[in-house]
Design a protein around this nucleic acid. Structure first.
Lengths: 225, 225
DNA sequence: AGAATCGGGTAACAATTTCTTAATCCCCAT
DNA sequence: ATGGGGATTAAGAAATTGTTACCCGATTCT
């Protein structure tokens, strides 16, 4: 699956970089903004999977930014974790009221930050888990090894093909349009022509046979039930 | 690998039995305790690979038990998953702060429980026991003496090369990306360019031949199955 | 002390593979 | 037969890895 994207909004550049470094190490894609206004702009553009928002900031503070996000249809469902130096209960309560999903007091250890992030993401998306090995029909798709097996045949697909197959297979039967596939497999802020998906599908079919991925005309593709 | 042992601590006997039944079916060994105090005792005795801990219990509650475990050198590194009937956010946050690694709200489906357990174990997987001597293919990798043997050839690899080889070999077949390799072999808060891994891989290949470590383009490296 | 060596890390560019695009071909429903 | 997809291909672009050279600091040798 594509990387989960996290937007970090904080006016302290050093902290921003530190958090970025640690999140990347954990396999997240990271976007950064230095104030609420910029945060909103980037959020609208890239639709991150989670926002880490400092409360005290110039221009537009975190609380305000969150209110704005919660009022925006496109952004209202993105989970938000407040980040703040103040360990003041009142602020915390207020923050959660305004629509924060969790609240972390700086300084915080990396481990703790990560586990909070994962916990919040899980609450939002129970389907987040990815499993090492997926068995569908006569195929075994092993994400840990990046190998697809059928009987005792082994297929080594290139990354994009593998990930596309994995994505579709893990949602067996569900149709996904090209744009969704691009977002999920290629990543959010990537811009490629959506026909690219066709080519990858073809390559997968070429290698595994064309009875796994079905075309749904005018809509997209799906892994056969 | 030996069977993984899971300690389940919960005061509801029925639930305890149900979980035991399901975990055993999955091939885990199961230990049971009915309160925090007993849990700690058993944990100290048997060093389980993971603890499933209810939060609400008589005698010593889960939160307290975890704090005790985290303060004990022998037990601090055992992963813990909280189990609770309360779906109250605040408790969850507190639990994670206290040192829980994950948090599951009862009731939960068996499948989900198992997959969470596996996910947490996977996170800790990398901490798994080191064996003194690893025999893979025609190689014998002796961690005790830092020597690799093939037939009656001996290879004395420098430390990083040796450890990288050992790490990959001990996870035969599994792909690891550069960042993970750096984290696991070089150490967590070390900052080196990830292409450094390439160079070390090359040096290993130069010495042992290039049929042990495989490249998975766009992903990372893996020791050949 | 100075030189030589070794382990480890970085940088650069060559080699290779994968990805993307775009053009063309096909199929099928209207 | 016509138009709207989708399939198929081939070629160029982009990304990733291999490989080599070189730097630096710590040790060891003279």
């Amino acid at each position: 699956m594509a990387k989960q994207t996290i937007l970090v909004v904080d006016d302290e550049k050093d902290l921003l970089d530190l958090i970025e470094y640690n999140l990347k190490k954990e396999g997240f894609a990271v976007l950064k903004a230095e104030n609420g206004e910029e945060g909103i702009k980037i959020a609208k553009e890239h639709k991150p999977d989670l926002v880490l928002m400092d409360i005290m900031m110039p221009k537009m503070d975190g609380m305000e930014a969150v209110e704005t996000m919660r009022a925006d249809d496109d952004l209202k469902s993105i989970p938000i974790i407040f980040l703040t130096a103040r360990s003041d209960e009142k602020t915390e309560v207020e923050g959660l009221d305004k629509g924060g999903d969790d609240y972390i007091t700086k300084p915080i250890s990396t481990t703790k930050l990560i586990s909070r992030i994962k916990a919040v993401m899980r609450r939002f998306d129970e389907t987040t888990e990815d499993i090492d090995r997926l068995d569908v029909h006569d195929l075994s798709i092993d994400k840990d090894r990046y190998i697809v097996t059928r009987g005792d045949e082994e297929f080594h697909l290139p990354r994009k093909e593998f990930e596309l197959l994995y994505y579709l297979a893990s949602r067996k039967g569900k149709v996904r349009d090209r744009q969704t596939l691009l977002n999920k497999v290629w990543g959010d802020n990537i811009y490629v022509v959506d026909r690219t998906v066709d080519v990858h599908v073809r390559k997968i079919r070429e290698k595994l046979g064309d009875h796994y991925i079905e075309t749904v005309k005018g809509v997209g593709y799906r892994f056969k039930e």
